[in-house]
Design a protein around this nucleic acid. Structure first.
Length: 947
RNA sequence: GCGAGAGUGGCGGAAUUGGCAGACGCGCCAGAUUUAGGAUCUGGUUCCCUACCGGGAAUGGGGGUUCGAGUCCCCCCUCUCGCACCA
């Protein structure tokens, strides 16, 4: 009677685990191994869980449950990354405070996760929006604010590695005499410029119609993604974090971690380290004539020989960065970005109108438009010239938006002969092109970027690229006109948002008599943390790009300090990244009121041993976390140099595969080969497997085999209507089936389509497991009568131990799909055995338990155990039981399978060869042939090579 | 354009890392049981030829190395994901 009934079993065991605090992390024991398994911090959206969440979460849960059974102490926490824009926008629409929405959503998420039976230590749960948590987020910000990066500091960290470069307290920043002479305020401003957290005017995407500032990806073609309203770019005072100072450290750290090579490569490319040279091109005074420029240039060169290359390039030169200093003789013009500070001074009266127009056009474009490669190069001549320092040639300076202000120095030397972009530009504006690297004879392209000897390059002629680079840098350094340099694609991190629902900055701005910001700041003192958001404040869009908190009540916004200085709070808020940058630390010590994490807790639990989540965080989140971690490491608060030892990205789950046919306006079928499914304007017809058949590589209509149809799985999306809701799956099949299915679909890291009949498949398997052990025809839940204290036979025992071995190895490899198939094989082999030896059932249930914990607990109980199986020892494989006395091996003739023989496992080569030759079919193929060679691999195969 | 990953039955996917291609599941076919089943159990199921015994072909395509290649090497095609004027 009692059939497999997850709706009864699952809530029962979830309640049991809760009541018995089964998965609370016990006190740390130094003698035991530890394992910290972490899921990427979820944002509790109003939509609740989607099927992508349980994929990673089930994987980590399996590992945790398995590890506990092997005697490891496991830390497996869960919490909420709950600041963010959706709750704020919801609040603006409905008037509900974001806090309320957020905590409601968290309740939904928690309920859903508990429903799936994950073995989190819920006693460690927190949300980034909890004042107890963001207090420490703010505290860490203050550490960033208090830190400068000393490039030259050589030191040995607590990990025993020697490094160059360290974040140090700002009080230790050496102050140049010239600054010190200017007084306290100058010193403070000097320090502020060197802090890892500093302020900077940066353009934001301001959308007046929506009354909000948009992220870059929310702006398309200069219009808002939502509503297509115009977006303006305007500069706003912003907080920046100097992550670029840590670029080399972030790069080096990648060698210390066990991450997928693809992710490390992604981070390396993102950081984008390049080496080359900085070169100064003399530009003289504004409005100088050509002759004046020449004579001033000679004087300048003499001065530079004396002084060497200054750190600050000054007003009379245009400094460029290049990775190809060897091509300097081919620099026939220069280009500066439209935002370059020298545009104004370089533009001659004749060119002024054209340049200004060009600048404003460029300003209106979004970054995305500007980087559209398809378009032709644009630009304007400034009217001014610079002098090429190696050949004294005067070359024109242009303004063009293909040069980015944010990279290098915002100015380039253009070498069309060796650079495709410069070549393109030179062609459009008819600028001279000089090749400085000899292309191969058969080279037919335009710019030549490959290897070759230098030509047209004076003293560099004949040198290969690397040699020429060394030689020219030596020359530039000697003449004080340049030096080797390193550059990064990585930019400093724009760390402020003009939003309400985020962590407030614990910073005050000093005001002058008139109430204006002086630019000087005071950090909130640690004991005053957390700096909370204002209460009783209805934030509404106020129609200006500055933050909504500008309208906060005065008692929140202003304060007078002890020395009588009027202070105004920082009104920007931190971005969502902030909270997720360090949550993995807090989980090790979530209730600590004295420190963000206790040193001992860190030593005990960190680093995270296994971190699983989506690849969408491959770059930003992981880079930001690593950055914060390294700053805290430098400041002596952490002893681990990297936060996440092993990283795994789960693949995306797509919707169920769809078969689509296309019909034009007149209802005629159109072959999929002739249409673009995105833009197709006719009728898209959903088909079923019965309508189609496979023809070569494609699916075609059975009725019209000339019509190819489209067959593929799409990303789940509301608009496509192919979203699978985990709640529905649990309601129909149970949590164990959902967990098992998501693991059975395929490799964890692969993208894979959902299949409802696949869910039924694993659900049927769990039904078979249920019936293998329980009696589904009895009225009560009782053991299956076939279960007996019988001795298992040799084969059954071997089956069990083979399963133990395979499942164990597969879990270690995170190869859950194959582990499950092994469990299925066991069930297929023993599900009908009668008698069913009880001694085999227990270990099997334990093997199943990490995957389908509810069912396993229930069956374990049924097998007569009172305690949860969560801490039962993991079954061990007895290798001696795997050995068989005979083995079947294939026999090939010329590499083709011709027969199979059964021989003793320890049979020698000769015996095997004889047996193989004696096989009837094999003998037939050997007849009338000469055996040229015989390959015998004992236990594996025999191959006769004949002629 | 650059970078990374992947192409195996009708479908999802397995294959000691060079050794029986297609484990396991879905789907499909047949049978058993059942009042019935979209429940359960048993068997079959890569394709082609063959009544059977058998045989041939096959891991996106082409070439190569090897006794032996899904696996290694070279060329090409397709798909997915990143990056995208970074000088």
């Amino acid at each position: 009677m009692p059939r497999y009934d997850p709706a009864r079993i699952e809530p029962h065991w979830q309640a049991h685990w809760d009541e018995h605090e089964t998965f609370h992390t016990g006190p740390f024991e130094a003698r035991r191994d530890k394992f910290y398994v972490l899921d990427m911090f979820p944002y509790p959206s109003g939509d609740g869980l989607h099927v992508g969440h349980p994929e990673g979460y089930t994987a980590t849960d399996i590992i945790c449950r398995y590890r506990r059974m092997t005697g490891t102490q496991v830390l497996h926490p869960m919490g909420w990354d709950a600041f963010g824009l959706p709750a704020e926008q919801h609040a603006i629409r409905t008037g509900t405070h974001p806090r309320e929405t957020t905590y409601q959503n968290i309740d939904t998420f928690r309920r859903q996760l508990k429903m799936l039976g994950f073995s989190y230590d819920w006693s460690r749960e927190f949300s980034t929006t909890d004042p107890d948590y963001f207090r420490w987020t703010q505290w860490i910000f203050l550490q960033l604010f208090d830190t400068w990066y000393d490039d030259e500091c050589r030191w040995t960290g607590p990990d025993g590695l020697e490094r160059v470069g360290r974040g140090r307290p700002i009080s230790e920043l050496p102050i140049p005499d010239a600054v010190a002479d200017d007084g306290d305020e100058a010193v403070r401003r000097y320090q502020d410029r060197h802090r890892l957290a500093y302020q900077h005017e940066a353009p934001v995407n301001w959308c007046p119609a929506l009354g909000t500032v948009l992220a870059n990806e929310e702006v398309i073609d200069g219009k808002s993604e939502r509503g297509e309203h115009p977006v303006e770019r305007l500069p706003l005072r912003q907080w920046m974090l100097a992550i670029t100072r840590y670029a080399d450290r972030l790069l080096d750290g990648l060698d210390l971690v066990d991450w997928p090579e693809s992710i490390r490569l992604l981070q390396r490319n993102w950081i984008g380290r390049s080496t080359g040279a900085e070169v100064d091109f003399f530009i003289g005074e504004p409005g100088q004539s050509a002759d004046e420029l020449d004579s001033a240039y000679a004087l300048w060169q003499n001065r530079r020989k004396e002084s060497g290359l200054p750190a600050d390039s000054g007003e009379e030169v245009l400094r460029v960065y290049t990775t190809r200093p060897d091509t300097l003789f081919g620099a026939t013009y220069m280009v500066i970005a439209p935002e370059h500070p020298f545009v104004e001074r370089l533009t001659t009266e004749l060119q002024r109108e054209a340049v200004t127009t060009y600048q404003s056009q460029a300003a209106a474009k979004s970054d995305l438009d500007r980087t559209d490669l398809a378009k032709e190069k644009t630009g304007v001549f400034t009217g001014s010239y610079a002098v090429n320092p190696v050949n004294d040639q005067k070359i024109p300076i242009w303004v063009a938006d293909y040069v980015l202000i944010s990279y290098g120095t915002g100015a380039i030397m253009a070498v069309p002969g060796q650079d495709e972009r410069d070549w393109e530009f030179a062609e459009v504006f008819d600028l001279p092109i000089i090749r400085t690297v000899e292309p191969p004879e058969d080279f037919t392209g335009q710019a030549y970027t490959g290897d070759g000897p230098a030509i047209n390059s004076g003293f560099l002629d004949g040198l290969e690229i690397d040699g020429a680079k060394d030689r020219i840098i030596e020359h530039l350094r000697g003449t004080g006109q340049g030096n080797s340099a390193v550059n990064f694609k990585l930019r400093d991190w724009l760390f402020s948002r003009q939003h309400f629902w985020g962590e407030p900055f614990p910073v005050w701005h000093e005001l002058d008599e008139e109430g204006n910001l002086t630019g000087l700041m005071r950090a909130e003192s640690e004991e005053n943390l957390p700096a909370k958001l204002p209460e009783n404040f209805e934030f509404k869009p106020h129609g200006r790009p500055d933050p909504p908190l500008e309208e906060a009540p005065d008692e929140w916004l202003y304060r007078t300090d002890e020395d009588g200085t009027r202070l105004k709070r920082e009104t920007n808020s931190m971005p969502q990244w902030a909270g997720s940058c360090w949550y993995y630390l807090r989980f090790a010590d979530p209730k600590n009121t004295d420190r963000f994490i206790d040193a001992e807790a860190e030593t005990n639990w960190l680093p995270v041993d296994l971190y699983i989540g989506g690849a969408e965080h491959a770059v930003l989140h992981l880079l930001y976390s690593r950055f914060w971690h390294k700053v805290l490491f430098d400041r002596g608060y952490l002893r681990t140099p990297e936060p996440f030892t092993r990283l795994v990205n789960q693949g995306m789950i797509l919707g169920e595969a769809e078969l689509t046919g296309f019909q034009d306006e007149s209802g005629e079928w159109v072959s999929a080969r002739e249409v673009d499914s995105e833009t197709f304007s006719g009728e898209k017809v959903s088909l079923t497997a019965d309508d189609v058949q496979k023809q070569g590589e494609e699916f075609v209509l059975t009725e019209h085999p000339e019509i190819v149809i489209d067959s593929r799985a799409y990303k789940m999306s509301k608009s496509r209507g192919n979203v699978i809701n985990p709640d529905d799956i649990v309601a129909e099949y149970g949590a164990d089936s959902l967990r098992l299915y998501e693991m059975f679909m395929g490799p964890l890291e692969a993208t894979k389509p959902w299949s409802m009949s696949g869910v039924e498949g694993v659900s049927r398997f769990l039904g078979r497991v249920w019936r293998m052990i329980s009696d589904d025809r009895a009225d009560e839940v009782t053991l299956n009568p076939a279960i007996a204290d019988a001795e298992p036979d040799e084969e059954q025992l071997r089956m069990l131990h083979r399963t133990i071995k395979a499942v164990t190895e597969d879990i270690e490899k995170l190869s859950f799909n194959t582990a499950i198939s092994r469990l299925m094989e066991f069930t297929n082999a023993l599900g009908q055995a009668d008698p069913r030896p009880r001694s085999l059932m227990g270990p099997f249930v334990l093997l199943l338990s990490p995957f389908a914990p509810h069912l396993a607990e229930e069956l374990w109980n049924l097998l007569g155990h009172d305690e949860s199986l969560a801490y039962e020892p993991w079954p061990e494989c007895d290798e001696s039981l795997l050995v068989t006395s005979t083995v079947e091996i294939p026999v090939q003739v010329n590499g083709k399978l011709r027969g199979k023989i059964v021989v003793a496992t320890d049979a020698d080569q000769e015996t095997i060869q004889e047996a193989a030759a004696a096989d009837e079919t094999v003998a037939r193929f050997l007849q009338d042939k000469t055996v040229v060679k015989t390959v015998v691999v004992p236990g594996r195969l025999v191959n006769f090579v004949v002629k």
